[in-house]
């Protein structure tokens, strides 16, 4: 088994009076895409937010690159090398595409100092960003905003990308394009991808974990899950049928 980059052990998260994560055990190997699947309300987004420190685990531990980050503040977790693309995309709509990326480039003091080679690499996936470079991000379409959100996460090298439902609300044609982009990205990045769209992630994922009721109920290789229709139905049920 390849080296583990992220490891959650027995993680519980409470939001107010609600006990959302009820002992999550999750391992993300270095390199490639680990997919976190599950129905609505299974706890996928809460898992990402707990890793990111936006909600804190009440029990259990989160280890990243060998360090315990369970109780670290969000900025420290980000600086440790984790980038987060939330379900809402978190775009700063009042700022231009350039300014959105500039803020994510923590190592530079002016937008002109951003790594041009890296930007060209990003434009290779998301060419539209070059065109909309000086447009306020709020004026872009949903697909273009998603490009900004992902580009912001990779504008500087990060050890791990947490991406929450990138295909939500996007047109099928754009989703196909995004599959191609993720295929390129996974050559160099480690990604923990939350999705409900099985057809999207089955084409991309290397490993998979399935959540239900705030716990991981299955983990293994994506190839194994893709081939086993009975297991898919058992684990994902109706949500899978509707997405295929």
């Amino acid at each position: 088994m390849s080296e583990l980059l992220l490891q959650l052990e027995g993680v519980h998260t409470h939001i107010g009076q609600y006990h959302i994560l009820q002992g999550v055990d999750l391992a993300v190997p270095k390199g490639g895409i680990t997919v976190l699947l599950g129905r609505n309300g299974a706890g996928k987004t809460t898992t990402l937010r707990t890793i990111m420190g936006l909600w804190h685990a009440s029990r259990g531990s989160v280890r990243f690159a060998g360090d315990d980050i369970t109780h670290s503040p969000t900025p420290d977790i980000a600086c440790a090398g984790i980038a987060y693309v939330p379900e809402s995309m978190g775009i700063f709509s009042d700022l231009t595409v350039r300014e959105n990326l500039f803020l994510a480039a923590r190592g530079v003091k002016s937008a002109d100092q951003m790594d041009e080679a890296r930007l060209e690499w990003i434009f290779g996936f998301f060419g539209a960003l070059k065109k909309f470079w000086n447009q306020p991000a709020g004026t872009l379409s949903g697909g273009q905003k998603q490009m900004v959100a992902i580009a912001r996460a990779i504008v500087e090298p990060r050890k791990l990308l947490l991406i929450d439902e990138p295909t939500k609300g996007l047109a099928p044609a754009i989703i196909q394009g995004m599959i191609a982009a993720f295929r390129e990205l996974k050559q160099t990045e480690t990604i923990l991808l939350v999705e409900q769209n099985f057809s999207f992630v089955s084409a991309l994922g290397d490993t998979v974990a399935v959540m239900d009721g705030g716990r991981i109920v299955h983990s293994g290789s994506m190839a194994e899950l893709t081939e086993d229709r009975d297991l898919q139905h058992k684990l994902l049920g109706l949500s899978l049928d509707t997405n295929q």
Binding site: G124, A128, M147, E184
Partner: peptide, 19 residues
């Protein structure tokens, strides 16, 4: 390298600036 610019920029005109 494959890009999604072609599909995502179907609405290829620059978004109108809402000043």
């Amino acid at each position: 390298m494959t890009t999604i610019s072609s599909v995502a920029a179907q609405d290829s005109a620059l978004p109108r600036l809402r000043v």
